[in-house]
Structures are given as C-alpha cells and as structure tokens.
Design a protein around this nucleic acid. Structure first.
Lengths: 268, 268
DNA sequence: CACCGTATGCTAACGGCGTTCACTTTCATG
DNA sequence: CATGAAAGTGAACGCCGTTAGCATACGGTG
C-alpha cells in the first residue's frame, strides 16, 4: 500500500536513490504544484487552469498530462499536500508547548488549525468545502485519502490523551440511542481510531467537538458571519473555550498577540 | 433601488397590473431560473452554464443577457429564490405545530432546515458553501442579501421567543470579554435583530447555536463524515438535542419516520 | 560508439464555455 | 400607421480541458 521499500524513512529526502531522470521529473512536478497553488491563492479554486499553469511555466497544457491525469487529479494531489501541510502546522504548534501540558498543546493545536485556515482560505476551501468534482478513480485519490486520514489521526491522538487522563465524564453507552451507537462504532472502525479508551460515548463527544470546530472555522473562512462581524477572533476564542470545557480542558488566553485577527500575515 | 411602486403587496401576485409584454418577460425569466435549477441539481454548481440553459430552452446564450447581467448574476438570483424557499420550508414546518408549543416549533424548524439541505444539496451549497465568485455589484445582489436576511430573521424570531420566556440563563455581559461584546453588538446592529430581550450574552448563545447547526448540516451535505458514517440522522438528532439543551428546549424525538435518512425522497 | 525504446514536450484540433457586438424582428404605444 | 424600445440571433474573441500524433532528447545496452 505505502511506498515501496525506500532506503530512507517515509519523510526522508525523496531525491535519494533516484536516477537523474527521476530527479528532474520530481522537480517539474513540484514546480507544477507550486504554480498551481499560486493560481489557487490568487484566483480562487475555480481560477486554477492547466493552460494557465503551463503558460506560467513556459510549457503547454498537454505537457502537464505527463504528470497528472486531469485537472481534477492535480487538485487531488494538492489536497494531499495541503492535508499534510496542515497536519504539520497543527502538530508543530502543539509540540511548541511542553509535553506534560496537555491543555496547552490542545489549545495550540486548535488555534493553529484556525490560523492555517484563515491564512490559506482557498486551500482550506479545497479541503473542507463542498466536494468539487466527482474525481473518482483519479490516480492521486489514494494519496489524498491517506493524507486526510493522517490529519485526523493527529486529532485522535490528542483526544485519546484526554480520554487517558479521564478529563471529562464519557457518556455511557446506555444513554445513547442504539442507532447512534452503531454509527459511532462504524466511524471508529473506518477511521482506524483504535485505543483501549475508545467507546461510543467517547466518539460521540469527539464528533461533537469536531462539528463545532468545523462550523466555527468554516463560517469564518466562507465569510458567512464576516459581513456582519468583522473580527472573528473573539468569537473563535469564546467558542474554543466552550468547546474545550466540554472535554475538561481549561481555557487559557493565547500567550501571543500574533494570532490572526482579520487576515493578518503570520509572523514567519 | 427597489421595485417601483407596485400596486400589489410585496408578496402579491406578480402578474397583477402588468402589461402583456411584462408578463411574457416574467414567464421566460421564470423558465430560465427553472432550467438553471435543473442543471444545478443534475450537474452540480459548476455544471450551470448559460449556453446549456439557453440550449435547453431553445434559445441562444446571448439572449439570456436581456435577463441577467452575467452567469454570476443568475446564480445570485437563484440564491435569493433558494433563501426564500428555505425560509418558507422552515416556517411552514414550524407552523405545523401549535403556537403555544415553542419547543415543538423549534424542533420542527431545525429539522426542516436539515431536511431541505439534504434534499437540495446543490442549492444548499450555493447558499452556505464558500463564496463562489466575487460577483460584487451584480444587479441581483440586493435581492439575494434581502432574502438571506429574511431567512435569518426567522431564526431570530424563534430565538427571541426563547428569550422572552427566559428559558435559559443568559450569560451576563460581565462574563464576556469586552472585545466579544463589541462584535456581538455590531452583529445585532447589522442584522437588524432588535428586541428588548437582546443582549450581548443572548447573541453569544445564538451564534453558538447557529455555528453548531451550520457545522452539523454542512458536514453532512459536504460529505465530510458520510464516507465514514453512512446515516447521519442519529448524529443529527443527538446533536440537535445537545444544542437545544443549551437554550432550554426539551428534546423530543421526531413524530414522523419520514425525515431523511440517507437522501430519501421526501413524501411530497 | 551507435542504437533503440521510453519519457517528455510540442502542435493542431475538437468541443464547450462566458461575453460582446451588430443586426433583425416583434410589438406596444403615440 | 409610424416609431422606438425590447427580445432574440449569428458571428466572433479568447478562454478552457482534453486527445491524438509527432518530434526530440535521454538512459541503458550491444
């Protein structure tokens, strides 16, 4: 399923053990994705075109078909990249705070999620907006799926630590409708969230948190409240506190003032 | 800006007091929108094209420019229609239950919101998905805005009745960060939600509810959990109960079994 | 070194799209 | 009946994704 037996680790330098041919191919492939992302951020998701990308690279559009099966396939590959970028941003922010401060790690992680979203609106839209096309069977479909699962696995890990510490009362299975219990177990099954702590009640709480976070950030990025509330940060912080209170995490205001207010550029 | 002095009321029969010329114009205009909607539901938001619509109507694309300034403008007009249709669906469901049963009315309203969304995925996407284009200054922009405000006004009304009955403890202003209070007041201001019961704390609760409902329904329609949880209804009902519990509304299972499970066709 | 297969990129072309422009036809009204 | 606005058309421009066929350059092999 995963990479072939590669000499270096899964995140190792990909140009290791490649022929010259393969290296230049990898280079143009990266250039295509870079250019595509620039078009994405500058003109929005619908402004990405193979012809435009090729033009910017001094190529012609049909040449790109040596790298991607279609425009959809290219967007799918971008999705994969964005998912891992987002996951790394979240993990990076979380690992900034000491390991024994779980509250701090979770706060940092969720704030990093929002920060990435508002700093990368088009990318966020691609990942979390409506499914753009029925690009079923595209070559990069598996890559995107794997990256999205790696992303959610990160949240699973954080949540599992909360369960481990018994931070909040997990609703007993008897309180859940049987229908819901079924779905929640199927959910844990399919996502591969396995842990001795997992239970339908735990999944119920996790999904509730994720739904709130998703709604909150989506409304901000999609500007469904922004026309009426210019700065969404106070609302985000308030809801963040409310969400985390349901899982026994004590809210704490951000250390730093450089979290995005409107769409302020990140510091680095 | 708005309509000229029209003899009939704002919701009166639009063909009253119109010349023959105006009537046929109104007819083709309606046919355009009907055809556009069919294309929308059949091929998704990106599958709507002026040429395709014209072809289906036995016209040519430039002819449509006598009715809409651009494709974006047509989509904007559709948005307006969908907002009022959704508002009417929600209001209609709510008015099914007796006026003195506020709990029942609210439950019916929110369930109707979800039902409309899953039964009209593309339409929902147009209304609540990412802002598709920067169609600023399109002629139908005002119409869409007004319709969206009329839609939210309906939720305001329901919420105001909860406030009136003092169903839940409204957080006092002193508990809210001043920054947030500012934004909430600006929010109430811009949306025209005026009532003796309105306060920053009340708005805080309202927004929290809306964010959760939006996230819940969006995730279902955009299929962000559906790959992993085939039937979202139990989850919706559970979250609905949790959301309403925060505003003092007692949950009650749906009377009827005909609420959508997967994407089941409505009864009528 | 020559050879050859493959990977890469090109041109040309097809059909579809939004949009503009100049033109005709239709029709209500003075 | 004449007139002028409204409605619709055909041609054209410049985009777009995608396919097919062709040239070229390169890597490994004799």
């Amino acid at each position: 399923m995963a990479d072939q037996a590669a000499p270096s680790g899964p995140t190792g330098d990909p140009s290791r053990g490649m022929s010259r041919r393969e290296r230049v191919r990898e280079t143009t492939l990266a250039e295509i994705k870079t250019t595509a992302r620039r078009h994405l951020t500058e003109h929005g998701p619908s402004g990405v075109s193979l012809r435009g990308i090729a033009r910017d690279m001094g190529m012609t559009a049909p040449g790109l078909y040596r790298y991607f099966a279609s425009l959809s396939d290219l967007l799918l590959a971008l999705q994969a990249d964005f998912f891992t970028e987002l996951a790394e941003a979240v993990r990076g922010a979380s690992e900034t705070v000491p390991e024994d401060d779980l509250d701090g790690r979770i706060l940092a992680a969720l704030r990093a999620f929002r920060s990435w979203a508002v700093a990368n609106e088009s990318e966020f839209t691609l990942l979390f907006g409506p499914p753009s096309h029925e690009h079923a069977g595209c070559p990069h479909e598996g890559e995107a799926l794997a990256a999205s699962q790696a992303f959610s696995a990160m949240f699973f890990t954080l949540f599992d630590q909360l369960l481990e510490e018994e931070r909040f009362p997990v609703p007993p299975e008897s309180e859940l409708p049987p229908e819901l219990t079924e779905r929640l177990l199927a959910f844990a099954e399919h996502t591969g969230f396995r842990s001795p702590n997992v239970s339908p009640g735990a999944m119920r709480v996790l999904v509730a948190c994720w739904v709130r976070l998703y709604g909150l950030v989506s409304m901000e990025v999609f500007r469904h409240l922004t026309f009426v509330m210019d700065d969404m940060r106070p609302m985000f912080e308030a809801e963040l506190g409310a969400i985390l209170a349901t899982v026994g995490v004590r809210y704490r205001p951000p250390d730093d003032g450089d979290l995005p207010r409107q769409a302020g550029p990140g510091r680095r």
